[in-house]
């Protein structure tokens, strides 16, 4: 977005990059305003994001995929510039690409109920190809390699490996075994099986805890990134204005958003209305 505005220079005597920056600041504050409560500014920013993303998708896929990679291979002389893209212009037409093009079009025919059945051909081809490609490599990389990685030495301390090596191996061994027992439902979880499956639950809880901790860290990182953007101009580290002016403007924008957005959120359902 900033790049777009950087090309749009001096519209009102202010470099376009700065206009883009302040629009981005405003939209950031609109998004953050959701933390207070749902409001029209958040909705506006949310819808803008979705709209711009979809528009970008459409244009990029047409320009970088459908035009050069599909139409360009079937009718290159109509698609490419003979002077700027000479090698692509001169390539031989490959009419085999009509077939995937048709399969792609069939997918869109779901929008026409009478012809919707044709989309099943495309899906059948896609699923068949996907399964054929994925199953052997899944077996090799997800099951065999991962199973092999659990066959680790559990004994032999004093052979030069640090103690932590054996502790890790024991943790992997016990953790994998107990988690597998927990998911083994053909036997009632009583006695030894019950105890082992309890260890399995603890292993799973530890894994979930690690994932949750990482997720919290990730969300905080995203906020840090936005904070950096608000303070340091999108990561370039160059302030357009002295920092105190920038901070004052951000606070003023936040206060305006607060007061204008106050009371404009969706009405809470009245008690008993459900």
């Amino acid at each position: 977005m900033l790049n777009f505005f950087s090309n749009w220079v001096d519209v009102i005597g202010v470099p376009g990059e700065i206009i883009g920056y302040w629009i981005a600041v405003g939209l950031t504050l609109c998004m953050l305003s959701f933390l207070y409560k749902d409001n029209p500014f958040f909705k506006l920013a949310e819808h803008l994001y979705l709209g711009i993303s979809n528009g970008y998708w459409l244009v990029y896929v047409w320009q970088a995929v459908i035009k050069p990679e599909l139409l360009g291979r079937i009718i290159p002389t109509y698609i490419f510039d003979p002077l700027e893209q000479t090698e692509l212009y001169n390539q031989d037409a490959n009419y085999l690409f009509i077939l995937p093009g048709l399969l792609g079009l069939f997918l869109l025919l779901r929008l026409i109920p009478a012809l919707g059945w044709l989309s099943r051909w495309s899906l059948a081809f896609y699923i068949g190809w996907g399964a054929g490609v994925a199953i052997p490599t899944y077996m090799a990389n997800y099951i065999l390699r991962q199973a092999t990685a659990t066959f680790t030495p559990l004994f032999g301390m004093g052979n030069g490996e640090p103690y932590s090596f054996y502790i890790n191996n024991w943790l992997i061994f016990v953790g994998v075994l107990s988690a597998l027992v927990y998911f083994f439902f053909s036997v009632e979880h009583k006695g030894v099986v019950g105890h082992v499956s309890k260890v399995g639950i603890w292993t799973l809880m530890l894994a979930f805890g690690a994932s949750f901790g990482s997720t919290v860290m990730a969300r905080v990182s995203l906020f840090i990134g936005r904070a950096r953007f608000l303070i340091e101009d999108g990561g370039s580290g160059t302030l357009y204005y002295p920092f105190y002016i920038q901070l004052a403007l951000i606070i003023i924008m936040a206060v305006i958003l607060y007061f204008v957005g106050r009371g404009k959120g969706p009405a809470k359902p009245e008690e008993g209305s459900a």
């Binding site: 490599t137 990389n141 092999t148 894994a207 690690a210 990482s214 997720t215 990730a218």
Partner: peptide
């Protein structure tokens, strides 16, 4: 890993969000 490194044989690593970090350790261990 599935379609690239295992077929072409190049060594590889991952940079990921913190959300995915824990889930990639089995691949690091293996």
């Amino acid at each position: 890993i599935l379609y690239g490194a295992s077929e072409s044989g190049y060594p590889m690593a991952a940079g990921c969000t913190a959300v995915s970090f824990a889930s990639y350790f089995p691949f690091y261990n293996s």
